[in-house]
Simulated assay, not measured.
Amino acid sequence: MNFTSIVFYVLSAILIVSSFKVITAKNPVHAALYLVLAFVTSAGHWMLLEAEFLAIALVLVYVGAVMVLFLFVLMMLDINIEKMREGFWRHFPLAGVIALVMVAEMTLVLMRPGTQLAAYQAREPLAADFSNIRELGLLLYTRYLYPFELASVVLLVAIVAAIALTMRKRKDSKYLNPGEQAAVRREDRVRIVKMDAEKPAAAGDDAAVSDQPQA
């Protein structure tokens, strides 16, 4: 067993443990931090596959942006942990069986002869000036163009659905209508009152001021 294999198994063990802790941690902030660890170890797997661009993108996008947003949301919301974890262990056996079936399917697909994994293991070492970014772009926009476009459409639909769910009218939420704000007139909000800058003092007021003792 060479050094690369040792690093792969160590990263895989860390990834499995951190992924399990993501769904079993009682504190949601701890679960988010375990997810960060899972992303970092996945980036290590990409580095072993000599896909440096994907590793850097995984760290920058998910760890540096998405997970920071998740942590802000988790810290700002008052989450009821006990209510959120209700029924977890009741559904855990079924979820475990489904996970084992998925792992078995992935193992059979990746380990059968003729797959891209077998071809990768039998390939020659890459040249020093090999650009995995260029190779990734060629694969995305030639062989996998239609799946790539389909994934972009699915993400667009998800964004529109999220906006629609957020903008729906609820009785317990306050919202503003930008159209009504833009159509408002000055006469509806502001009332101009004209008055004199100075009010002349009455004669009785002057006499009262003069009768006061001087300090």
Results as ranks from 00 to 15, higher is better:
residue 99 A to H: 04
residue 122 A to M: 01
residue 117 L to A: 05
residue 154 V to N: 02
residue 100 L to T: 13
residue 51 A to I: 04
residue 54 L to H: 05
residue 30 H to K: 09
residue 169 K to Q: 12
residue 186 R to P: 03
residue 143 R to Q: 11
residue 9 Y to T: 04
residue 70 F to C: 13
residue 100 L to Q: 08
residue 193 V to T: 11
residue 127 A to T: 11
residue 65 A to G: 11
residue 66 V to W: 09
residue 173 S to G: 03
residue 23 I to Q: 04
residue 187 E to L: 11
residue 205 D to Q: 13
residue 15 L to E: 09
residue 120 Y to L: 01
residue 143 R to E: 13
residue 108 L to R: 14
residue 23 I to N: 05
residue 215 A to H: 03
residue 31 A to E: 04
residue 189 R to P: 01
residue 34 Y to R: 02
residue 207 A to S: 12
residue 13 A to W: 04
residue 110 L to H: 04
residue 125 P to K: 03
residue 180 E to L: 09
residue 92 F to V: 02
residue 5 S to E: 08
residue 199 K to T: 13
residue 116 Q to F: 02
residue 199 K to L: 14
residue 208 A to S: 10
residue 43 A to T: 06
residue 90 R to S: 09
residue 202 A to K: 15
residue 172 D to T: 14
residue 94 L to D: 10
residue 129 D to H: 02
residue 62 Y to I: 09
residue 106 M to R: 10
residue 181 Q to L: 14
residue 155 L to E: 06
residue 174 K to L: 15
residue 106 M to P: 04
residue 82 E to I: 10
residue 21 K to F: 08
residue 67 M to P: 01
residue 79 I to F: 09
residue 156 L to T: 07
residue 100 L to H: 02
residue 210 S to M: 14
residue 54 L to G: 05
residue 125 P to N: 04
residue 149 E to N: 08
residue 46 W to C: 07
residue 210 S to P: 00
residue 19 S to F: 00
residue 199 K to M: 12
residue 94 L to T: 13
residue 122 A to Y: 00
residue 146 Y to N: 12
residue 209 V to G: 01
residue 67 M to V: 07
residue 94 L to S: 15
residue 160 V to D: 03
residue 77 L to P: 01
residue 74 L to G: 02
residue 129 D to G: 06
residue 204 G to F: 04
residue 192 I to V: 15
residue 210 S to A: 12
residue 86 E to H: 06
residue 36 V to K: 14
residue 104 A to F: 09
residue 85 R to F: 07
residue 95 A to E: 08
residue 70 F to W: 08
residue 95 A to R: 15
residue 16 I to V: 10
residue 127 A to P: 06
residue 77 L to H: 05
residue 214 Q to E: 08
residue 177 N to A: 10
residue 2 N to H: 02
residue 69 L to N: 08
residue 81 I to L: 05
residue 40 V to C: 02
residue 131 S to L: 01
residue 111 M to F: 08
residue 99 A to Y: 04
residue 164 A to L: 06
residue 39 F to E: 07
residue 168 R to Y: 01
residue 194 K to T: 13
residue 148 F to Y: 06
residue 165 L to H: 12
residue 89 W to S: 13
residue 191 R to Y: 07
residue 177 N to D: 15
residue 174 K to C: 10
residue 37 L to E: 09
residue 45 H to G: 03
residue 156 L to G: 12
residue 26 K to H: 07
residue 165 L to E: 08
